[in-house]
Write a protein that binds this DNA or RNA. Structure first.
Length: 815
RNA sequence: GCCAGGGUGGCGGAAUUGGUAGACGCAGUGGACUCAAAAUCCACCGGUGGCAACACUGUGGGGGUUCGACUCCCCCCCCUGGUACCA
């Protein structure tokens, strides 16, 4: 394309200006302006560099930050690096390059790329999770959790991946294989640090209600927490005086339909209650289940399997003896690890009962249990549900009512009690890796001794070569000198922890560190925290919808309980940007060869075009494909603008000092209104289209009034800040546009004298009339009936009804 | 299976409380400029029929409510994301 505007020069000039003048420095505790904290999910600086997906969210927050500054807010808009993590460690193992070196290189690349887009970050607040000055405070927070009794160690059957030489979190295992690399994963018990997030389940659930997050994200979190209400019921085991099985059920109303019980293979009582003649079958089943991966136990296990234990339980409502089975469809990790099976009214039990020909007894009528389990709790009616002595009956009730009645009875007779269960499990908080935050604890045999704050940070030892320990422990097991600590007084030897923290740790609280990033005495200053928190707008990818946001909320609540933060929730408003797909409509990936490199886009079209295009593609939250000729469109828009106002010698053309005409005033004020409203709603695509309408209007004028152009430049500023600054200075202004007041619209210019109304006959548009605004009904109808096409369509018919919606539409109904 | 979000021209997408469907941009077609091309500028641009005026039709499919439905209600289909034996 010829005659391209000199974006390279302009962009470099203004980026330098902003940096030198610290234009975007956020001032703490500034009281004459309202504060606004706008946060991006900070990136993991991978070796591949920035991807066009990253700048989408960053552009959105940047435009919003610039807009908010022009609206008079004191904006905090920081950026940093979530730089611990497996890839750098894998790279170190393969090449010998220390993770710290590789990480620094990657950060430099990311930073250069991010800066090339002209984002208005306060770079003085840059943080890096791998910096010991940062992770000192990550360790400090761990100590707070530990002291509060929320961190504990447990032997947990974890996901051991022999290839990676590490244990993976559940979310890192997909279909029984490692998320990274796709290596097989097996279950192996190891000593692990756990965090008691389950203790906060209820609050994490309740406080979602007041957050300005999309319902879908809130729902994902609700589902993840997975609260179920029901009852714990005690079933005595026949022949074992002091042994009973406790089960959790959400359907205590169906107790009379419980025809057998099932224990998880790992259930601690299984061995005890197994009869001699069933022992070998049960043992072999249990051993088989132990070896099964999660994949085998879930996805591929279409067929129910199980073995009878030889023992019977007594159903507490009717004293019936029911067989106790063992099956892996019951999980030890949920509820009590044992269930009462009600095949008539539970799909899984139904399948199991059919497979093993166990009795199916209907206790809720309304379905057809010869075909499938009937699980509705609103439409059915309880039947066959009365004790023989007649002292308890729920017959005739709706199941949803019977649930409560049964719980009352269970509590009264001491056979059970109301109970709540969550799907949420405690958080497995350690990794067998080098490149993570070391745990600030010492081990003395089975005792753990936390370090004191004054001993922090506990830094990572510099290893000559990072290699797996081979034992399942992290490479830190190879660092003998670091590992052993000798008490100078007693000579006693303590051992350090070889586990390190997961990547989530650093990202759980970074938004707090941005508030006070250089504080060496505390994690953050409470006064600054009170001033800046909560984060007013948080934008990032939907891949963090559950875990990162749940973990961060959990830590935040703990910090709140300890008095370190002043808000119950960290992120007031959350928006997830959609994915940017390749030109083929597929997810961008190296293997598909459809990756767009932002560096090339910036080199070819400039940062302003890149920013504008990413926002013009469609609604922020939706996924949308990249289109190479689409970017030409916005590029053309900027070029036309430049050519229209800047002559060949680089000077501003002559603008008119006249007042804009009425039509132009309408465009100006309608644009101020629409662009502002759209920005408030993060509807960047429609805001940009309004700017195009505005610009097209100016193109059609013989001479452009200065007022029209200046207002336009101000509205353009958040979107294409480099060009806007340049035009602003060519307009003769000497200060940055960054804090220029956002234009104010005047409603009086938005109302015109006349309005065009559509006239419909039977709902079909047949004519248009131009009429005075707020003309009365009779005048409107008269004008309508004067239209030839209307007369034509009405002629010879009876007018049934005439509808006039003022300034909107006329509809004449005829028969 | 369950939960959430979507289906609008050739494409990305617009449409306040139900009130002229297709803003804006891309692609395409025709024209101007040019020796020519690129760039630029102007015009057209959902489909069918018609020289045209215009008519009919059209927002995943089928019903309904309404003077009027992309918008509200019911049923169904498809796509995307999440989740998956959670008792």
């Amino acid at each position: 394309m010829a005659d391209r505007y000199p974006f390279t020069k302009i962009e470099a000039k203004w980026q330098q200006y902003w940096e030198e003048n610290k234009t975007f420095k956020a001032i703490d505790n500034l009281t004459d302006k309202p504060k606004y904290y706008i946060l991006d999910m900070f990136p993991y600086p991978s070796g591949a560099g920035l991807h066009v997906g990253h700048p989408e969210g960053y552009t959105a927050t940047d435009i919003f930050s610039r807009y908010k500054r022009m609206r008079g807010f004191n904006v905090l808009h920081p950026m940093g690096w979530d730089a611990f993590g497996l890839p750098a460690e894998q790279y170190a193992i393969e090449t010998g390059t220390p993770p710290s070196i590789k990480t620094a290189e990657n950060i430099a690349t990311f930073k250069r790329q991010i800066k090339s887009l002209g984002f208005s970050y306060d770079w003085d607040r840059e943080i890096n999770t791998t910096d010991e000055k940062y992770y000192k405070w990550t360790q400090w927070i761990f100590l707070q959790l530990y002291k509060k009794g929320l961190a504990y160690q447990a032997e947990v059957a974890v996901n051991w991946c022999p290839e990676l030489g590490t244990v993976l979190a559940n979310e890192e295992v997909i279909d029984g294989k490692s998320e990274r690399g796709g290596y097989p994963v097996i279950r192996k018990p190891m000593r692990q640090w756990m965090l008691k997030i389950t203790e906060y389940a209820e609050r994490l659930l309740d406080d979602l209600d007041n957050l300005d997050w999309s319902e879908s994200i809130k729902d994902m979190q609700r589902n993840w927490i997975g609260k179920s209400e029901g009852a714990d019921v005690v079933f005595p085991v026949d022949g074992f005086e002091d042994l009973s099985l406790e089960v959790f059920t959400t359907r205590p109303d169906t107790l009379f339909g419980a025809t057998y019980m099932v224990m998880a293979p790992e259930h601690p009582y299984l061995q005890t209650i197994t009869s001699a003649e069933n022992r070998s079958a049960v043992d072999s089943y249990r051993q088989k289940a132990e070896r099964k991966s999660d994949l085998d136990r879930t996805d591929l296990a279409k067929e129910k399997t199980g073995v009878f234990t030889g023992s019977y339980a007594i159903n507490p409502v009717n004293q019936k003896r029911i067989p106790i089975w063992v099956s892996d469809y019951v999980l030890m990790s949920y509820g009590t690890g044992a269930i009462m099976a009600v095949p008539a009214h539970d799909t899984r039990d139904y399948e199991f009962a059919q497979a093993f020909e166990l009795p199916i007894v209907e206790v809720v009528s309304g379905g057809d249990i010869s075909q499938e389990a009937f699980t509705d709790i609103e439409d059915g009616v309880m039947v066959n549900s009365a004790s023989q002595d007649g002292d308890f009956s729920i017959d005739g009730l709706k199941p949803s009512v019977a649930i409560g009645k049964t719980i009352e009875w269970l509590e009264k007779t001491n056979k059970g009690k109301a109970a709540v269960n969550y799907k949420l499990r405690d958080w497995l908080f350690s990794r067998q890796r080098y490149w993570g935050e070391p745990f600030p604890v010492l081990h003395d045999g089975d005792n753990s001794i936390p370090l004191s704050t004054s001993d922090l940070p506990l830094t990572l030892p510099v290893l000559e070569r990072i290699k797996p320990s081979g034992t399942g422990e992290s490479p830190l097991a190879n660092a003998k000198e670091w590992l052993e600590v000798v008490d100078p007084e007693t000579g006693k030897v303590f051992k350090r922890e070889t586990n390190t923290m997961p990547q989530w740790a650093g990202s759980c609280w970074y938004y707090l560190r941005f508030i006070d990033p250089h504080n060496e005495d505390q994690a953050w200053d409470p006064e600054k925290e009170k001033y800046w928190m909560p984060v007013d707008l948080y934008i990032g990818g939907a891949e963090h919808a559950v875990l990162h946001l749940l973990y961060a909320r959990f830590w935040h609540k703990v910090l709140y309980d300890l008095g370190f933060v002043s808000t119950r929730e960290p992120f007031r408003k959350l928006v997830n940007q959609g994915m940017i797909l390749g030109t083929d409509g597929e997810k961008m990936s190296k293997s598909r060869g459809n990756v767009i490199n932002p560096d090339e886009v910036v080199a070819q079209y400039g940062a302003d075009t890149m920013r504008l295009y990413e926002m013009f593609m469609g609604p922020l939250e939706r996924s949308k494909p990249w289109n190479t000729s689409g970017i030409e469109g916005v590029y053309r828009f900027l070029n036309k603008l430049w050519r229209h106002f800047i002559d060949d010698s680089g000077e501003l053309i002559q603008l008119s000092s006249e007042k804009p005409d009425a039509e132009t005033l309408t465009v100006i004020h309608a644009s101020i209104k629409k662009v502002g409203n759209d920005l408030d709603n993060l509807a960047f695509n429609t805001a940009i289209s309004q700017l195009m309408v505005y610009s097209n209007h100016m193109r059609d004028l013989d001479t452009v009034p200065r007022e029209a152009f200046e207002t336009f430049v101000a509205l353009l500023a958040p979107f294409a800040p480099h060009m806007a600054e340049e035009l602003w200075s060519l307009l003769g202004h000497e200060t940055t546009l960054a804090y220029q007041a956002w234009p104010v619209y005047d409603e009086s210019h938005l109302t015109t004298k006349t309005v065009t109304l559509a006239v419909q006959v039977n709902g079909k548009v047949r004519a248009q009339i131009e009429i005075d605004v707020d003309a009365d009904k009779d005048a409107v109808l008269k004008a309508a009936h004067d239209q030839a096409p209307i007369q034509q369509h009405v002629e010879g018919k009876t007018i049934v009804k005439e509808i006039v919606v003022p300034n909107r539409i006329v509809n004449i109904v005829v028969k």
